[in-house]
Amino acid sequence: MKSVNKSILPAYKGCLSEPILPRIVFMPKNSIYPNHLHDYGEFNFCYRGVLNIQINEKHFLVPPQYGLWLPPRIEHIASNDDEVMHCSLYILSEYCDGLPTEPTILILNPLIRSILWYLQEKSVIDLTSNKDKRLLQVLVDQLSEMPKVASYLPMTNHRILKPILQFLDKEPNSSLSLPDLAKQFNTTERTLIRHSKKELGMTLSEWKQRLRIIKSLSLLDTTDYTIESIAFELGYNSASAFSSVFKKLMKMSPMELRKQLRDF
């Protein structure tokens, strides 16, 4: 069980002073926002690191380039293993029309990411400025149009899948094929395919690729390992294979993300 070294108090317990309020927060390693809810919606985006949001038994991982939308009055716990810098955008319920009615991961377009980075660089938003208010409204309008995915890296307590996912989490460089995994965990390939589609919404192969990308973020940020070294560390046969998967999921190359993090 990981040790939690810092508890962070949620912001704006009462009413919001503005319809749309951004808040940028640094979370040290192993921090946590205890279980809480808001009367307003909340959108979370990570500039660096990965945020883990727990809602009942469901976990949402929020890596850079993606965002998590939480409708009003959803109880949740937020935590992280490595350092995280994130933006929480709080939105009054009457401004949430068009946004999902369930917690969901949003795939963000370049305009949204640019606005979010602008908020971070500016650090202090002038909420009396009509220009900044319009910018925040554009951000909310854009969020309502983004593609949705149930979860970037879904988890499950399914009795067959859970031990396999735990194994892959500990051994992301494992080269075991689907038949090999089925044999090692005393099940069948067909059973794994069926339950993966039902419980995860994706194949085990896709889940493992997403896991590897999550693992690579910390290595890109906190080490000077070459892209090739990171690729081999995570079980890829070449740097090009790793870079191809990374760019498909993160919308930029590993080197581009590393530069963004180092310039942060």
Rank of each mutant, 00 (worst) to 15 (best):
M1Y: 07
S3R: 13
N5C: 05
K6L: 10
L9E: 14
L9F: 08
L9N: 11
P10Q: 03
A11V: 12
K13C: 04
L16G: 03
S17F: 10
E18T: 12
L21F: 13
L21G: 03
V25E: 15
V25S: 11
F26Q: 11
P28R: 02
N30G: 00
Y33T: 01
Y33R: 02
N35R: 06
L37F: 14
H38D: 08
D39R: 09
F43N: 02
N44L: 15
R48V: 07
G49A: 03
G49F: 00
L51Q: 03
L51W: 08
N52E: 15
N52P: 00
I53E: 13
Q54D: 07
Q54R: 07
N56L: 09
N56H: 12
V62N: 02
P63H: 04
P64I: 14
W69G: 01
P71V: 07
P71Y: 09
R73M: 14
I74M: 06
E75H: 11
H76D: 00
I77N: 04
S79Q: 12
S79H: 01
S79E: 10
M85W: 07
H86L: 15
S88D: 14
Y90M: 10
E94N: 11
C96L: 05
D97W: 06
G98P: 05
T101K: 10
T101P: 02
P103M: 07
P103C: 00
T104C: 10
N109P: 00
I112L: 09
R113L: 08
S114E: 14
Y118E: 13
Q120G: 13
E121F: 12
K122T: 15
K122V: 08
S123C: 11
L127D: 10
N130C: 09
K131S: 13
R134S: 14
L135E: 05
V138M: 11
L139A: 01
V140E: 06
D141H: 13
E145A: 05
E145S: 03
V149K: 08
S151Q: 12
Y152S: 00
L153E: 06
L153T: 06
M155G: 05
H158Y: 09
R159Q: 09
K162A: 11
P163Q: 05
Q166T: 06
D169N: 07
E171A: 04
P172A: 04
L176P: 02
K183P: 03
Q184D: 00
Q184I: 09
N186Q: 12
T191N: 13
T191M: 14
L192P: 09
I193F: 03
R194S: 11
R194M: 12
L200C: 07
G201L: 08
M202D: 10
M202Y: 04
M202C: 15
T203S: 15
T203C: 02
T203D: 08
L204H: 07
K208Q: 15
Q209L: 08
R212C: 04
K215S: 00
L217I: 12
D224P: 03
Y225H: 07
Y225V: 03
T226I: 01
A231P: 01
F232H: 14
E233G: 02
S243D: 02
S243A: 08
S243H: 00
K247S: 15
K248N: 15
K248R: 12
M250K: 04
K251Y: 14
M252Q: 15
S253Q: 04
M255N: 11
M255S: 11
E256W: 03
E256A: 13
Q260T: 10
F264M: 15
